[in-house]
Design a protein around this nucleic acid. Structure first.
Lengths: 196, 196
DNA sequence: AATTGTATATCAATCGATTGATTGATTGCT
DNA sequence: AGCAATCAATCAATCGATTGATATACAATT
């Protein structure tokens, strides 16, 4: 996944992948049926991993009240940003996913959408609906959720230029805190209550 | 740029590029010195193009008042989103740029940053500062601007999944209007005045 | 306890195909 | 004639995939 995330699927050679894994090239064909099989396996792996990070928090009732929904949303933003910035493998995972999501003819796009994007986005829409009162599956709510997660994704994908512009030497816990603070401010204001 | 944007630099073969351009492979070496030269030329071309889209609007004084700054910001968001969604070549241009910005060892990252990211981001920070009163080069303002443009970028890069989740058959003017409306709402609320 | 059978897994070696780059010849225009 | 541009042809290098041989582990048999 690291090799795929760095420069794209075509840029990663099976030899480089095998070398980094400390094994032989043939093992790719043996275990995954080929380079494309490895691509699908990566999609499944990252779907399962991200699903754990963005999973609904325990203790969330079906019909949460407004304040509770906002609290859960805030905790989810904290967790997502922390995962994106701090977690070591997140960079490659997010890069891999976004590469696949970007090209419409990706062989794993459908898999990633149904197992990862759709359920997570739907859950966030439900929370957003509970926090704002707007209908969950309305066009505007869906776009609002997209614009929220889009921020987080951007802070990971465009990390090199963010670091440079911010003058950050690292991209770790301290920096994640600053990003989280700004994103929580955005969330609070976007939801409506200007209690930053 | 289209070939580079689709599957990445390595995925684009010089033969496919030459074929799409309706010329011979050797012309790449003749005019650009090789595949890497073509990469740099694409970076320069896209930098010039996007610079025009995000350029400061005419009639902007050096020290705009609060309301004027907000108005200019709103018009910039309109223009950027329209360009990202509607403009035919924007998809490839944004895809190309984001691919280069994503990998820290890109040979054109420095070029793109100094000519494209830095000046545009700095101008937006100045506007944001005028619209909110916060210091322009403060950490929080810079992050706020990043989270704003990150939304727009995401709506282009993740277009396939956005379309699918929204149930959109197209990704053109009507859809750009919906995205613009949501992003303007976000902008207004993020800036502070909750006048949606 | 020793041996054999079998499935699992990795290995070096090699396959044809494709890559970016280069060459010398050719074209079109002034 | 002279210059700029494009062309088909070819180069070594690398690509993904495949091959047959080999190593390991565990069950069945002697």
């Amino acid at each position: 996944m690291q090799q795929f995330g760095r420069g794209g699927f075509e840029a990663a050679s099976t030899r480089a992948i095998a070398a980094q894994a400390g094994t032989n090239i043939s093992s790719i064909a043996y275990h995954f049926g080929g380079k494309d099989g490895l691509r699908i396996a990566c999609a499944d792996a990252v779907a399962e991993r991200i699903a754990q990070v963005a999973r609904p928090l325990p203790g969330l009732q079906d019909r949460p009240d407004l304040l509770h929904a906002r609290l859960v949303l805030r905790r989810l933003v904290r967790r997502i940003v922390t995962f994106m910035i701090v977690s070591p493998g997140a960079s490659d995972a997010v890069a891999f996913v976004l590469r696949e999501l970007a090209q419409p003819d990706s062989p794993v796009l459908d898999r990633l959408y149904t197992t990862l994007v759709e359920p997570r986005h739907r859950a966030l829409c439900a929370l957003w609906s509970a926090a704002t009162g707007e209908p969950a599956e309305s066009e505007d709510v869906k776009l609002a959720v997209f614009s929220l997660v889009g921020q987080a994704v951007y802070f990971r994908v465009a990390a090199p230029i963010v670091r440079r512009r911010m003058g950050w030497r690292h991209y770790a816990r301290a920096e994640a805190r600053a990003i989280t603070r700004r994103m929580l401010t955005n969330l609070d204001r976007m939801i409506g209550g200007g209690d930053g």
